[in-house]
């Protein structure tokens, strides 16, 4: 009994070790670091763990050698995940094509789109595919999320897949949103203005805003595409300053 009382409180080191063990044993930790990861509790450099690294990789998860027969049915997944990825590829390809004819500056952007549509072979078609494809991708990613949820496919051991999926959904929305700005027409400008006005209140992004007056959106940093934003911001800063001078 006396021996126990000799050391009544655990030292800082012991407490840190205990906390580390608890973190490593938690569901969140184990869902992020799958079997084979060196960060898992009780990891050993064994052939089994080396095999797990490959078998648990994301590519192998997406397409293992064999899949359950019911999962192959189109009515089960509606191919939504695959289509989302395919649309991403399609948007990359058509987007690179569009980049050849487009200068992301306030002075040239709209005129470049106009020229692309009227003077470039298949320019209008490719632009249409890029735009409709982007809308379709937002829709398919959203529906894919719903499908995964209703099948309970986010449950252990796939919790972290779901988290990555939510991040990808957010990224899809943001990329689509920034792409919305690029034609630099009235629709783009004012849609993005409304959007950035909403985001202007978020803690990090919104801190750059100078004031909450109506004209303040003009020198907001987040115009979507930074290439377009920089020259545009310079111009806007000038207009708002001059406008402020007029108001005074």
């Amino acid at each position: 009994m006396a021996k126990v009382l000799d050391n009544p409180r655990p030292t800082l080191k012991e407490r840190a070790a205990k906390l580390g063990g608890q973190v490593q044993g938690s569901q969140v930790w184990n869902s992020i670091f799958r079997p084979g990861s060196i960060f898992r509790k009780g990891y050993t450099d064994s052939p089994r763990n080396r095999s797990y690294v490959i078998m648990n990789s994301v590519l192998y998860h997406l397409h293992p050698v064999k899949v359950k027969r019911h999962a192959v049915k189109v009515s089960y997944t509606l191919c939504l995940g695959g289509l989302s990825f395919f649309l991403f590829i399609l948007l990359t390809v058509t987007g690179i094509f569009l980049m050849f004819f487009y200068r992301p500056t306030g002075a040239n952007a709209w005129q470049d789109i106009q020229t692309l549509q009227t003077s470039v072979t298949f320019g209008l078609l490719i632009r249409n595919m890029h735009r409709w494809g982007a809308h379709l991708m937002v829709l398919s990613v959203f529906l894919h999320m719903a499908r995964v949820f209703y099948h309970g496919a986010y449950k252990p051991p796939r919790e972290f897949n779901w988290v990555i999926g939510v991040v990808l959904l957010t990224l899809t929305l943001l990329l689509s949103f920034t792409g919305y700005l690029l034609p630099w027409d009235q629709l783009a400008l004012w849609a993005v203005t409304v959007g950035t006005n909403m985001m202007g209140y978020s803690p990090v992004i919104g801190s750059v805003r100078a004031s909450r007056t109506h004209a303040s959106f003009r020198h907001r940093h987040l115009y979507g595409n930074s290439l377009l934003a920089r020259p545009q911001r310079r111009r806007n800063l000038w207009t708002s300053v001059s406008e402020g001078a007029h108001n005074d």
Binding site: L124, R127, H130, W184, D185, L187
Partner: peptide, 8 residues
């Protein structure tokens, strides 16, 4: 066709 309104 994708919409393209007047310039911003």
């Amino acid at each position: 066709n994708a919409p393209l309104l007047h310039a911003a």
